[in-house]
């Protein structure tokens, strides 16, 4: 059952078409990956879906309701959260302080288990700017997952992480989405990680959909192999 959908989404920056006619449908408990080379429009896609960038045509729906013109704040209050490619945390606050602040706003009932799952318990009372980069990424993810959102849009949660951290991060994403029945969109550079983690995959190239479907299907798609995966496939 689709809970969150983007239909025919296009985003323009002036004369530049950053995204053209892209469709996506997210379902609870499933992780939908979006891959593509640099400049393919992945971040623009998330910006359009989350209300950060203005959509020039197309609609975004949530539970069947058209929410294209809704503010980021409205979306978050109604269960659509996102994370950012560049770590976007509150640097001068302690981890506890910021998680509690967002939890109070969004009514999180089980922060303790989220904190435990993401391994944040040991750093709760440390100021965010002083903790390791990988842990900051987990705080970023926690900020998006607080308050039982129905949809999370994750913009390269593994950016800047080493292989081990990256594997663990994607595992968390998958586990939490299944456990909490969250519909997730995962934009990621780590192609193998996406194939390992996601239930469905969309490949973007130059702002357009190159292929979309189950991981195996996408991996064997000749257009994808030729344009993007190359010999690695």
């Amino acid at each position: 059952m689709t809970i969150f959908e983007g239909r025919g989404l296009s985003v323009r920056y002036g004369a530049v078409k950053a995204l053209t006619n892209v469709d996506i449908a997210l379902e609870p408990g499933l992780v939908h990956g979006v891959i593509g080379p640099n400049g393919a429009g992945k971040s623009t896609f998330i910006d359009g879906l989350s209300g950060r960038a203005r959509v020039s045509s197309g609609v975004v729906t949530f539970n069947g309701e058209d929410i294209t013109a809704r503010s980021p704040r409205w979306r978050r209050r109604h269960g659509i959260a996102r994370s950012f490619q560049r770590t976007s945390v509150f640097n001068s606050m302690t981890v506890r302080h910021q998680l509690e602040m967002v939890a109070e706003r969004n009514g999180e009932s089980d922060l303790a288990s989220l904190v435990d799952t993401l391994g944040l318990a040991p750093v709760m009372d440390r100021v965010c700017s002083e903790i390791a980069y990988g842990t900051q990424r987990s705080v970023d993810l926690a900020l998006a997952l607080i308050g039982d959102p129905k949809v999370v849009l994750l913009d390269e949660p593994c950016a800047g992480l080493v292989q081990d951290e990256s594997v663990r991060m994607l595992q968390h994403v998958r586990d939490i989405c299944r456990e909490r029945e969250v519909a997730a969109l995962l934009v990621e550079h780590d192609v193998e990680g996406v194939f390992r983690t996601c239930d469905r995959i969309t490949v973007l190239n130059l702002g357009e959909v190159l292929a979309s479907g189950e991981p195996a299907e996408v991996r064997s798609n000749p257009a994808v192999v030729q344009a993007y995966l190359g010999s690695a496939a």
């Binding site: 989350s50 950060r52 503010s71 980021p72 704040r73 978050r76 209050r77 959260a81 996102r82 950012f84 976007s88 945390v89 509150f90 640097n91 967002v102 706003r105 969004n106 900020l143 607080i146 308050g147």
Partner: peptide, 9 residues
């Protein structure tokens, strides 16, 4: 981080 605040509701 104003943007994150808006995206946090």
């Amino acid at each position: 981080n104003e943007e994150r605040m808006r995206f946090s509701g």
